[in-house]
Simulated scan of single mutants.
Amino acid sequence: MKKTWTGWGPTADQPEQHYLIEPRHLAGGGDIRYVTEYLRASGWTDRSYKGGLPMVFDSPDRTVRIGYDPHAMPGGWTISGQAAEHQGEWHATLTTGVPVEIVAGLTDTLTKTRSAHAPNPWAPLEQNEWETERGQHFTAVSPDRNTWLQYHQNSPGQSHWWAGARTEHGRAWDAVFTSTTPMHLIEGFSAALADPTPVMRQRGHVPATKWIRTTSVSVRPSQLGAWQQTRITAARATTWARNSWAARQGNKAPATGPYASASGTQQRR
Rank of each mutant, 00 (worst) to 15 (best):
G81L: 09
L20Y: 11
G75A: 05
R242C: 01
K252V: 09
G105T: 08
L149F: 09
G188Y: 07
F138N: 02
S216T: 10
W211I: 02
P156F: 04
H86I: 06
P70L: 06
G81D: 07
V199T: 09
T256I: 15
T111K: 13
G43K: 01
I66C: 05
N120F: 14
A175N: 01
T36K: 04
G204N: 05
W8F: 13
V64M: 03
A192H: 00
A72H: 04
A226F: 11
T107A: 11
G204P: 01
V217Y: 07
W240S: 13
P70K: 04
R236D: 13
L110F: 08
T197D: 11
N243E: 12
T45P: 00
W161K: 02
R65D: 08
R268S: 03
M55D: 02
W211M: 14
Q127H: 06
T4D: 10
K112Q: 15
A72N: 08
K252N: 08
T11W: 06
G30E: 06
G28C: 10
E168R: 13
H184Q: 15
W8I: 10
A237M: 14
G51N: 13
P54C: 08
R213E: 15
N251D: 05
N251I: 03
T107I: 14
R242D: 05
S218C: 05
S115C: 09
P121T: 13
S244W: 12
L20G: 08
G204S: 06
N128S: 11
L149W: 02
W130G: 02
W5M: 03
Q17M: 12
A234E: 10
S142Y: 03
G30H: 07
P54A: 09
G264T: 03
V56F: 03
T180K: 15
Q87H: 12
P121L: 09
T239F: 14
K50Y: 15
K2M: 07
E22I: 04
T96I: 13
D31T: 03
L106W: 15
N251G: 01
I232R: 12
T209V: 15
R47K: 10
G7H: 04
P23G: 02
T239H: 13
P23R: 00
A123I: 09
G30Q: 09
N251T: 03
A192V: 00
A260V: 06
A84H: 09
S222M: 15
P254E: 06
Q14D: 15
W90D: 02
T111V: 14
S218A: 11
R220D: 12
W90A: 04
P74D: 05
K210W: 12
D31E: 10
S59R: 00
E37L: 11
R24P: 01
L125R: 04
T109I: 12
G52R: 10
L53E: 08
T167N: 09
V219R: 02
T209C: 15
V103D: 03
G170M: 05
T214W: 09
P254G: 09
G75D: 02
F177M: 05
G28M: 07
T63I: 03
P70I: 03
H184G: 14
L110E: 02
T45I: 05
A226S: 13
P60F: 01
H152F: 12
